[in-house]
């Protein structure tokens, strides 16, 4: 389903709306080039999960953890070269059932991810702060929620896009 935001703040709002549908144990992949707003989306999701602490890019430390209504693990694989580096970080345990996990550039390491996940892709569109955002729900628990998700994100739906039937 195609969505569009016109500013960083709008991308955050979209993240906050998305967060309302997240359950502990969910894995969300954030894909998109540098500067397309993956971290802004993560900040909105953090706000929606009731995280008081400021969410900053995890690029440098790879993994950041936050406590909230639902706790959050924010991962960025951008600085890694080898899958082994993720094993060495205990990646299998980073993904746990009690927290939501966001993985920036997670589309590059799908072999390590659970089949059940939400993939959100951001793309720069015309206009300096305009972003086209698409999401794909994978696995039964996400398919179950895709109608609710489409509804929650409808304020940003592109005109004429009827949404994706799953």
């Amino acid at each position: 389903m195609s969505l569009r935001t016109q500013s960083v703040e709008e991308t955050r709002d979209l993240g906050e709306a998305l967060a309302a549908l997240l359950w502990p144990g969910d894995v969300v992949v954030l894909a998109g080039d540098l500067g397309t707003g993956k971290t802004a989306l993560a900040q909105g999701i953090g706000r929606g999960l009731g995280i008081a602490e400021a969410i900053v890019s995890p690029s440098f430390v790879i993994v950041r953890e936050y406590a909230g209504r639902i706790s959050l693990v924010h991962v960025d694989v951008y600085r890694l070269d080898f899958v082994q580096e993720l094993h060495d970080l205990g990646f299998e345990e980073v993904l746990d059932e009690e927290r939501v996990t966001l993985i920036e550039w997670g589309d590059r390491v799908t072999g390590l991810l659970p089949e059940e996940r939400l993939e959100v892709t951001l793309r720069a569109a015309e206009g300096p702060a305009t972003r086209d955002i698409e999401w794909v729900a994978l696995g039964p628990a996400w398919l179950e929620r895709s109608d609710a998700l489409a509804k929650a994100l409808s304020p940003w739906a592109l005109p004429g896009d009827g949404g994706r039937s799953c």
Binding site: L80, D81, F82, V83, Q84, V109, G111
Partner: peptide, 13 residues
């Protein structure tokens, strides 16, 4: 858990 795989980075990184 061992892996020799490289992460598939394209020209984007």
């Amino acid at each position: 858990r061992k892996s020799d795989a490289e992460i598939a980075w394209g020209p984007d990184r």
